[in-house]
């Protein structure tokens, strides 16, 4: 029930999937909102503190997720060959954008050699600091990849609803609860 099998996802994958969905939407909203704050707003400093702390934890979770995914059987894909390839490419792109968004965000804050504090609990050190105009370039990548990610995630949800309501398949159900 924890691990994935050929018929369905297990609780670990299901949990990580929905936690990621929640965090991605929350971080996007927070990131967008915090840029509008005035200098004297209490959240001017708290917003980025939460955004970066949660972002680093999501990056760690995503790396663990990729490892977990590789170590588990994959549920069989439903639908035509065309739909299967489309789903594969879509999911691959979701992973790429997820990682690109988080890594570029990390590169903004660490461009001057400062590490990123995670809830004042531990600090992730800066590794790459010598890309020309690093914080600006990483900033552009961070914004566009985050935007692409939430748009693609929206499409991902629509496809899930289509498979559930129109095609009457258990695509969505098996991501809600392990199927027998």
């Amino acid at each position: 029930m924890i691990r994935d099998n050929q018929r369905s996802y297990g609780w670990a994958t299901i949990g990580i999937h929905w936690l990621t969905a929640l965090v991605v939407v929350a971080l996007f909203a927070l990131g967008y909102w915090m840029l509008t704050l005035s200098y004297y707003d209490p959240w001017y400093r708290l917003g980025p503190w939460w955004h970066k702390s949660v972002g680093i934890l999501l990056l760690a979770l995503t790396v663990a997720r990729v490892v977990w995914r590789a170590a588990n059987k994959k549920p069989e894909l439903i639908g035509s060959r065309f739909e299967q390839i489309g789903a594969h490419l879509g999911h691959l792109l979701l992973y790429v954008l997820l990682l690109l968004t988080m890594v570029s965000g990390y590169l903004i804050s660490t461009a001057d050699g400062r590490g990123i504090s995670v809830f004042d609990w531990f600090e992730v050190p800066a590794l790459i600091t010598s890309i020309p105009a690093q914080e600006d370039l990483a900033g552009e990548v961070h914004w566009y990849s985050a935007l692409a990610l939430v748009i693609l995630a929206g499409g991902h949800s629509l496809m899930a609803l289509k498979h559930h309501f129109l095609d009457k398949q258990n695509t969505l159900k098996r991501m809600l609860k392990p199927q027998k």
């Binding site: 903004i108 804050s109 660490t110 001057d112 400062r114 690093q134 914080e135 600006d136 900033g139």
Partner: peptide, 8 residues
């Protein structure tokens, strides 16, 4: 200003 986020 010796701070990447601020310079950005």
């Amino acid at each position: 200003s010796n701070h990447a986020e601020r310079d950005k």
